[in-house]
Design a protein around this nucleic acid. Structure first.
Length: 285
DNA sequence: ACCCAGGCGGGCG
DNA sequence: CGCCCGCATGGG
């Protein structure tokens, strides 16, 4: 078994895994070992963050693939000190950053992001995870050669496009089953998400909005966590609630106004600000 | 029992 | 446009 030791600062695996990003819905986190195991591109990757050190151990049967994947997935080349400087605009942001230092945005496969964020609408993390796991088990390809062959890959859109709505409901998708099936068909036969990589935020979002079941918030989540567009600012009920309290004197404020506020204040790094607002808002008692 | 969940499409004015 | 409603389902 091969491994690599990356030298990484300001990367907290626990916060990153727990903060309801796509990996939270299917990766397996071991808190004692502070290690994360997940399938990717036909391989199983394990990373272990050594506490009180700057070491990140990567283990896989294909190290060339794994090291590159981990670097990209966890945005390890982001200059966190610089980003913090951009988004630490006030006392609230300062405490959010201090509460979750090293919480990183992740960069995920666009189709993965599309599926899990459609599934996330009007749903809770526990159930999103249960349903995602169930879909992986039912439609994912088996990965051979590691971990007792227990881990399957995230299913390609084609597999989900071939599924029946009824079977997706059985996985726990509820009323979102229809959206997920339509999205899978659309992503398999109508648009090529891969070809959107490198396009601008506006064009990516506009294209994503053509998918039925993808609205403003989900499109921004995909732009941010599937395409790495850091200016995207997804506004869900937690972000809205938290921002109304912190920045709008507790008054109901339209999503449009909140989006304008965020864009003005955090600009090109609004997406990072959003993840800290979201997670700080969700976790405070 | 009752409330809530990383929203969305559709129908209405 | 903006507003309002229903939506499947399980966990707290």
């Amino acid at each position: 078994m091969n491994f690599a030791n990356l030298n990484i600062r300001l990367f907290n695996l626990k916060h990153t895994f727990e903060s309801a990003q796509p990996l939270a819905f299917y990766a397996d986190y071991n808190e004692v070992a502070n290690s994360l195991t997940y399938p990717s591109g036909g391989h199983v990757i394990n990373i272990r963050r050594v506490k009180e050190s700057d070491s990140l151990f990567v283990t896989s049967n294909n190290m060339d693939y794994a090291v590159k994947e981990v670097r990209e997935r966890f945005r390890l080349d982001d200059r966190m000190n610089f980003i913090y400087k951009q988004i630490n605009t006030d006392n609230f942001m300062d405490s959010a950053i201090k509460n979750f230092p090293g919480l990183r945005l992740t960069l995920n496969d666009p189709w993965e992001a599309t599926l899990v964020f459609i599934l996330s609408q009007f749903n809770n993390v526990k159930r999103i995870r249960k349903t995602t796991k169930s879909m992986i088990e039912k439609y994912g390809e088996r990965i051979s050669g590691e971990y007792d062959n227990k881990i399957k890959d995230f299913p390609e859109s084609e597999r989900i496009a071939d599924a029946s709505e009824k079977d997706l409901v059985k996985c726990g998708a509820g009323f979102r089953a229809k959206y997920i099936r339509d999205a899978a068909e659309f992503c398999t036969y109508n648009i090529n998400l891969e070809s959107l990589k490198g396009k601008k935020y506006d064009e990516i979002k506009e294209t994503l909005l053509e998918i039925k079941g993808v609205g403003d918030k989900v499109a921004d989540c995909i732009a941010l966590m599937g395409f790495g567009k850091l200016e995207a600012f997804p506004i869900d009920r937690w972000v809205k609630r938290t921002m109304e309290r912190v920045y709008f004197k507790g008054k109901e404020t339209s999503i449009k106004k909140i989006a304008e506020f965020a864009s003005e204040r955090w600009g090109d790094y609004a997406g990072y600000a959003q993840q800290y607002i979201f997670w700080n808002g969700r976790t405070e008692g």
